[in-house]
Design a protein around this nucleic acid. Structure first.
Length: 202
DNA sequence: AGTGCGATTGACT
DNA sequence: GTCAATCGCACTA
């Protein structure tokens, strides 16, 4: 597969626009055990001022990376069991980002199966905690520049954009009515209940 | 110092 | 479909 590293200037400077932009792009993790990659099919935006966003109550030790300029990785540990991967979206000092919720496995599928302890293709990377585990992402990747020459990066495969759906975000309680979850229609690799997979956006 | 709560998952009915 | 596990962090006192 032909992959081209995305440059920071190509990333939309707006959080919601970035969340939509990321659909169809590739997230790549080059590890000691080879390349792990997947096509992004579901994201959520956590823009400035969003009560559901981790930056809402200011910078802390945990969410520090969320305040890096756009195109950095913000990884955090949730529910005592999972790591979640976000792409930061604003200028330095402003906390906002896009959560990657699901990818379609591309390269390194055998390694992903080992990391996840299953060979069921749909269970590999459907859900933010699952995809992080499949891609071997944890706090060691927190704060990495996704637009630099590092091991974790974003790529375009030149795929034509497909139909995009939108819904409310999953698993939050504050600002729960905002339509800030975006996903690709017609792929089985999207997480969430069925009723949140059919709404049309653009 | 103690408490409550998740940007979830996997097991189970 | 429902529900508990799990633990670091933020918040209160």
């Amino acid at each position: 597969m032909r992959l081209r590293r995305l440059r920071r200037a190509e990333l939309p400077a707006d959080t919601v626009a970035l969340a939509r932009f990321l659909l169809g792009k590739i997230v790549v993790h080059d590890t000691r055990h080879g390349r792990l990659s997947g096509r992004i099919v579901e994201t959520e935006a956590y823009p400035v001022g969003d009560a559901a966003g981790h930056a809402f109550r200011g910078m802390t030790e945990r969410n520090r990376a969320l305040f890096l300029k756009r195109g950095h990785a913000y990884v955090y540990f949730a529910y005592g069991s999972c790591f979640l991967l976000n792409v930061t979206s604003e200028v330095a000092g402003v906390g906002a980002g896009a959560l990657i919720r699901a990818i379609e496995p591309l390269e390194g599928i055998a390694a992903m199966e080992r990391h996840r302890g299953t060979t069921r293709r749909l269970d590999l990377t459907r859900g933010p905690g699952r995809l992080a585990e499949a891609l071997a992402i944890d706090l060691a990747q927190n704060g990495l520049d996704l637009c630099g020459a590092g091991p974790l990066w974003l790529a375009s495969a030149g795929d034509p954009p497909r139909s995009i759906g939108a819904s409310v975000r999953i698993g939050i309680t504050r600002d729960a009515d905002r339509v800030l979850r975006f996903y690709e229609h017609g792929t089985p690799f999207v997480s969430g209940p069925k009723r949140l997979r059919a709404e049309r956006s653009s």
